[in-house]
Lab assay of single mutants.
Amino acid sequence: ATNIVGKVKWYNSTKNFGFIEQDNGGKDVFVHKSAVDAAGLHSLEEGQDVIFDLEEKQGKAYAVNLRIK
């Protein structure tokens, strides 16, 4: 899925991951530091509006192509 809109539920910059809540009511999506770095960001803030693509690997969904809304 592409261009999914959501809000950062939480992001832990020490542990380098967090979760994004989808605006469409879907399951929360894992986001890793690598996606944050690829977006040219240092971190994510709770409540921040983002747009992302959804990829699945080994049955787990995660956010890629992250951008600030």
Rank of each mutant, 00 (worst) to 15 (best):
A1S: 07
A1K: 15
T2I: 12
T2W: 11
N3D: 14
N3A: 08
N3W: 06
I4G: 05
I4T: 06
I4H: 05
I4F: 06
I4N: 08
V5T: 05
V5E: 14
V5L: 10
V5A: 14
G6I: 01
G6P: 00
G6A: 05
G6F: 01
K7V: 09
K7G: 02
K7M: 06
K7Y: 15
K7N: 05
K7F: 09
V8Q: 01
V8M: 04
K9N: 03
K9V: 06
K9M: 05
K9W: 02
K9C: 03
W10T: 04
W10E: 02
W10A: 03
W10I: 04
N12L: 13
N12Y: 10
N12P: 02
N12A: 12
N12Q: 06
S13W: 05
S13V: 14
S13L: 15
S13G: 11
S13F: 14
S13A: 11
T14H: 13
T14P: 07
K15H: 10
N16E: 09
N16V: 03
N16H: 15
N16T: 08
F17I: 05
F17S: 03
F17Q: 03
F17P: 00
F17L: 03
F17V: 03
F17H: 08
G18T: 01
G18K: 00
G18F: 04
G18E: 00
G18V: 01
F19R: 02
F19A: 02
F19K: 03
I20Q: 00
E21C: 04
E21L: 14
E21F: 15
Q22T: 11
Q22G: 11
Q22F: 07
Q22K: 09
Q22H: 12
D23Q: 13
D23K: 13
D23E: 11
D23F: 14
N24T: 10
N24L: 14
N24I: 11
N24A: 14
G25D: 10
G25C: 04
G25H: 07
G25P: 08
G25F: 12
G26C: 05
G26P: 09
K27H: 13
D28L: 13
D28Q: 15
V29W: 07
V29Q: 02
V29R: 05
F30W: 05
F30E: 02
V31Y: 05
H32E: 03
K33A: 13
K33H: 08
K33P: 02
S34V: 14
A35L: 03
A35K: 08
V36H: 02
V36A: 04
V36G: 02
D37F: 13
D37K: 12
D37W: 07
D37I: 12
A38L: 11
A38Q: 10
A38R: 08
A38T: 15
L41M: 13
L41H: 15
H42M: 09
H42F: 15
S43Q: 14
S43T: 08
L44K: 01
L44F: 08
E45L: 07
E45K: 13
E46H: 09
E46G: 08
E46A: 11
E46Y: 13
E46S: 11
E46N: 07
G47P: 02
G47D: 14
G47L: 06
G47I: 03
Q48H: 09
D49C: 04
D49I: 14
D49N: 15
D49R: 11
V50H: 01
V50R: 00
I51K: 13
I51L: 12
F52P: 00
F52H: 02
D53P: 00
D53M: 04
D53N: 06
D53I: 04
D53E: 04
D53R: 03
D53A: 05
L54D: 01
L54Q: 15
L54E: 05
E55I: 11
E56V: 11
E56T: 15
E56R: 12
E56K: 09
E56G: 06
K57E: 15
K57I: 08
K57A: 11
K57N: 11
G59H: 15
G59Y: 06
G59I: 05
G59R: 14
K60S: 12
K60D: 04
K60M: 13
K60P: 04
A61S: 15
A61M: 14
Y62K: 09
Y62D: 02
A63Y: 00
A63F: 00
A63P: 01
A63S: 04
A63T: 03
A63E: 00
V64D: 04
V64L: 12
V64K: 13
V64S: 09
N65R: 12
N65A: 07
N65H: 13
L66C: 02
L66A: 01
L66W: 00
L66H: 00
R67P: 00
R67I: 13
R67V: 08
I68Q: 08
I68K: 15
I68P: 08
I68W: 09
I68T: 12
K69Q: 14
K69I: 06
K69P: 06
